[in-house]
Amino acid sequence: MIEPLVNRLQHYTVLEKGEIDMLRSMPECTRQFKKGEYIIQEGKNPVAVHLMLEGWACRCKMLSDGREQIMGYLIRGDLCDLHVTLLSHMDHGIRSLTPATVAMIPEESIDRIFDASPRLARALSWGMMVDEAIARHWILNIGLRTAEARLAHLFCELLLRFRAAGLSEGQGNTIDMPLTQVNLAETLGLTAVHVNRILQRLRQKGLVALRHKKLTVLDADGLREMAEFDERYLHLGP
């Protein structure tokens, strides 16, 4: 179940068998979460590193009036903040968007990996830097891009992230898409009605298809052009 993490890390560096075995042998406590359940709530003390094994989750913050901003998506193979246990409390929440299986990895296990394997430590640190790069592009998305470009950019990014984790389907252009229009609205700073209109336009232009909670990118070049998408910020190798 840890293979998506291994696949992702090997885009950053070539891992030897012993290093992969080290990842696979990490002690963990596995928990199941229902859709909408908090994996860890804002303000709580983080006591372990969370690894997504199944399902989707999001980073989120909510205002007192109930409005929520989604600030990042977590898919299979994603670590939810490698050094989160350094913090005394969470400054945001992590909530499941689908039924999810999450491994709770003790801080000591991460420390041992960093001590035992500089190359694996480098790959894990590289992954953290990519997460920060994604966050910067999300800020740019909301601040400057048109509504159509925001959604197109998000779809381009998710497609490449799924490919990197070995989770895409078909010819590599189909991924799981359990997100609701409300989820997308809370991600892109739009209303659900506006998201619905944009999805219709993307379909009409022959760029994407959405069926049975699957997203298929039909015209990758067209979607990239609409989004002005430059994949270099994902640092997926040469």
Rank of each mutant, 00 (worst) to 15 (best):
residue 3 E to G: 05
residue 3 E to S: 06
residue 7 N to S: 11
residue 7 N to A: 05
residue 8 R to N: 04
residue 9 L to V: 02
residue 9 L to I: 05
residue 10 Q to F: 02
residue 12 Y to I: 12
residue 13 T to D: 15
residue 13 T to V: 15
residue 13 T to H: 10
residue 14 V to E: 14
residue 14 V to H: 03
residue 15 L to N: 03
residue 17 K to S: 11
residue 20 I to E: 00
residue 21 D to K: 10
residue 21 D to A: 12
residue 23 L to R: 02
residue 28 E to V: 08
residue 29 C to V: 15
residue 30 T to R: 13
residue 31 R to M: 14
residue 32 Q to N: 07
residue 36 G to T: 02
residue 36 G to W: 08
residue 37 E to D: 02
residue 39 I to S: 03
residue 40 I to R: 03
residue 41 Q to S: 14
residue 42 E to Y: 04
residue 42 E to R: 08
residue 45 N to Q: 10
residue 46 P to H: 02
residue 50 H to W: 13
residue 52 M to S: 08
residue 56 W to T: 09
residue 56 W to L: 13
residue 57 A to V: 03
residue 58 C to K: 08
residue 60 C to K: 14
residue 61 K to D: 15
residue 63 L to W: 10
residue 65 D to A: 02
residue 68 E to H: 09
residue 72 G to H: 02
residue 78 D to K: 00
residue 84 V to E: 06
residue 86 L to R: 11
residue 88 S to A: 10
residue 89 H to N: 04
residue 92 H to G: 07
residue 93 G to E: 01
residue 93 G to C: 04
residue 94 I to K: 04
residue 94 I to M: 04
residue 96 S to V: 03
residue 97 L to G: 00
residue 97 L to I: 09
residue 102 V to F: 01
residue 102 V to R: 00
residue 103 A to Q: 00
residue 104 M to Y: 12
residue 105 I to F: 07
residue 109 S to F: 05
residue 110 I to R: 02
residue 111 D to T: 07
residue 111 D to L: 15
residue 113 I to M: 06
residue 116 A to H: 12
residue 116 A to M: 13
residue 118 P to K: 08
residue 119 R to A: 10
residue 119 R to H: 05
residue 119 R to N: 14
residue 120 L to R: 01
residue 122 R to H: 11
residue 130 V to Q: 08
residue 132 E to C: 14
residue 132 E to I: 15
residue 138 W to G: 10
residue 141 N to P: 11
residue 142 I to H: 15
residue 145 R to E: 09
residue 148 E to G: 09
residue 150 R to K: 01
residue 150 R to E: 06
residue 153 H to D: 09
residue 154 L to V: 15
residue 156 C to K: 05
residue 158 L to W: 05
residue 161 R to N: 10
residue 161 R to F: 13
residue 164 A to Q: 06
residue 165 A to K: 04
residue 169 E to Y: 14
residue 173 N to I: 07
residue 174 T to F: 03
residue 174 T to C: 13
residue 176 D to I: 12
residue 176 D to R: 11
residue 178 P to W: 06
residue 178 P to T: 02
residue 179 L to S: 10
residue 180 T to K: 10
residue 185 A to L: 12
residue 191 T to W: 00
residue 192 A to I: 03
residue 193 V to Y: 06
residue 194 H to G: 12
residue 195 V to E: 01
residue 196 N to W: 10
residue 197 R to D: 08
residue 197 R to V: 14
residue 203 R to K: 15
residue 204 Q to I: 12
residue 206 G to H: 05
residue 207 L to K: 05
residue 208 V to L: 08
residue 208 V to C: 10
residue 209 A to F: 03
residue 215 L to H: 07
residue 217 V to K: 03
residue 219 D to Q: 10
residue 220 A to H: 13
residue 223 L to A: 06
residue 228 E to C: 15
residue 230 D to V: 09
residue 230 D to I: 14
residue 233 Y to L: 05
residue 234 L to P: 01
residue 236 L to T: 01
residue 236 L to M: 06
residue 236 L to P: 02
residue 238 P to S: 11
